[in-house]
């Protein structure tokens, strides 16, 4: 019920799905069976080619199934980073008389366009011109953005 008047839009999808033990058990069982099957495939290749192909096919299918299970529904993420986040906020003050600019940490009670504190350089009063989140150093590099 927090009201905003922003007009709707789209946002990036969030992946945060964890794999379960059921998944893991199935993968392990299929993996072992497939390995054994492949082994027999190679083993019987000289004597009986039809049997060999059948084994190889079964083994390959097993691995394909594992691949499908692993990559469907996103990769399992180890830990959720979702909690209630806290950002570092900074306040920018400007003196309308002498154009002095100063940046400090946000204090509760600060708001944009507030007449805040006397100017340190002249007898004017500094006005808060901006309250915003401190820019984080670019964590992720742009990955091939099509412009």
């Amino acid at each position: 019920m927090m009201k905003t008047h922003s007009q709707g839009g789209s946002a990036p999808p969030v992946t945060g799905i964890t794999a379960s033990w059921v998944n893991l058990a199935i993968i392990v069982v299929i993996g072992i069976l497939s390995l054994v099957s492949l082994y027999f495939g190679f083993k019987s290749f000289i004597e009986d080619q039809i049997t060999a192909y059948t084994y190889l096919l079964i083994g390959a299918l097993g691995f394909a199934a594992i691949g499908y299970m692993l990559f469907r529904g996103g990769r399992p993420s180890a830990q959720s980073k979702m909690d209630i986040p806290r950002a570092e906020i900074i306040t920018t003050l400007e003196c309308p008389k002498c154009n002095l600019r100063r940046v400090r940490d946000f204090k509760q009670g600060d708001y944009v366009f507030k007449n805040d504190e006397p100017c340190t350089r002249c007898d004017g009063v500094m006005i808060i011109s901006r309250v915003n989140r401190k820019k984080e150093p670019d964590k992720e590099k742009k990955q091939g953005v099509i412009e």
Partner: peptide
């Protein structure tokens, strides 16, 4: 599920702002 968590994430970032009276993205107007 991904859409729900996206919505939840967009709400949780508002907690700090509303708690301390910080301008938000919607405050640009």
């Amino acid at each position: 599920l991904p859409l729900i968590m996206q919505l939840v994430e967009s709400l949780t970032v508002g907690i700090q702002a509303t708690r301390e009276g910080i301008p938000i993205g919607d405050s640009v107007g």
